[in-house]
């Protein structure tokens, strides 16, 4: 098991390194300097700014200096918000994004797996068709469409929930979390249905039933563990999707999170902010993938036995 974890960690390092390198050079290759927007900057000021942001150095020295800073956890200063560092901006945006993501994931896993298990217990009945049709709608209804539609119905027409903000009015966290989580609930429902259907046809489930266990115990104790494996494996990739989805949801609901910063940085061409956020988010995604792989391996007895050999 440890060898597996260390092996996967060693795989993650080159990936993170590639991300940093590719992002750095992509951003540097962008046409137009970061100070081109400000017209008629005095040459001395421009030179001072370039020195401050190390733009006067040759590119490979900039790159090495950036790596050195990164290794100390320093993501550098922002171009657009002078005097603020990327670290500060990320720290101010991260809590809202993390909370939003956590709620969305929670909604996705709880609602999704309940629907999927319910469907798998009575396949090809209404109990299967209804949740699975809803899952199909969830998959085909993109976040950026679901969000405005929910706002239109529950925010404007029924006036039940606030249409924007985060933590200002009670209940304003509900709609963004549902909007972000819905598509993933749909995927989780499909995956857990397929997983449970496969597990419930296994011999050890028949054994459990044969020895007279009540059905809920068969499902919860014996079925769930194997049936949820595909869901756990899906959580890694889902995390990356959730982050991208938070760009949209935070924009729609005006949440002061990392996703909105990123989109704004993209519009402002705040290159250091784009660079810093990309490196930060990508590292997070790679680490989360790693985590979900490890948990999936740990949950899977066959794989665990293979690994401990």
């Amino acid at each position: 098991m440890w060898r597996f974890i260390i092996g996967r960690l060693l795989q993650a390092i080159p990936v993170i390194f590639i991300v940093i390198t590719a992002t750095f050079f992509l951003v540097r290759a962008a046409p137009g300097g970061p100070f081109d927007a400000e017209k008629a900057v005095i040459p001395e000021v421009k030179a001072a700014l370039e020195r401050q942001y190390r733009l006067d150095l040759p590119i490979h020295e900039q790159y090495i200096a950036y790596l050195v800073d990164l290794s100390q956890g320093d993501l550098g200063p922002s171009f657009k918000y002078p005097g603020r560092t990327i670290n500060e901006l990320i720290e101010s945006g991260l809590p809202a994004t993390a909370e939003l993501g956590a709620y969305a994931l929670l909604i996705a896993v709880i609602i999704g797996s309940l629907a999927g298990i319910a469907a798998a217990l009575r396949p090809n009945t209404l109990q299967d068709y209804i949740p699975m049709s809803m899952a199909m709608i969830g998959i085909c209804m993109p976040t950026f469409l679901l969000g405005p539609i929910l706002v239109l119905i529950f925010g404007i027409h029924l006036d039940w929930l606030p249409v924007s903000g985060w933590g200002d009015i009670p209940g304003d966290k509900l709609m963004p979390s549902i909007t972000l989580g819905a598509a993933y609930a749909a995927y989780v429902a499909r995956l857990s249905r397929a997983g449970m259907l496969e597990v419930l046809s296994q011999d050890y489930i028949r054994t459990a039933r044969a020895k007279g266990l009540p059905e809920w115990q068969v499902v919860l104790k014996h079925g769930l563990r194997g049936g949820m494996l595909p869901v756990v494996a899906f959580l890694g990739p889902a995390f990356a999707g959730l982050l991208a989805g938070s760009f949209v949801v935070e924009t729609i609901f005006q949440i002061p999170g990392l996703g909105r910063f990123y989109v704004q940085a993209a519009f402002n061409r705040d290159y250091t902010m784009i660079l810093g956020t990309t490196v930060f988010l990508s590292t997070l995604i790679v680490l989360f993938n790693l985590l979900s792989d490890i948990v999936a391996a740990w949950l899977n007895p066959r794989l665990r036995a293979q690994l401990s050999e």
Binding site: V15, V19, V27, A240, L243, I274, T278, S282, I285
Partner: peptide
């Protein structure tokens, strides 16, 4: 393993 969604935005 690369986070492509973010890369495409970039």
């Amino acid at each position: 393993a690369l986070p492509f969604m973010i890369f495409i935005v970039l």
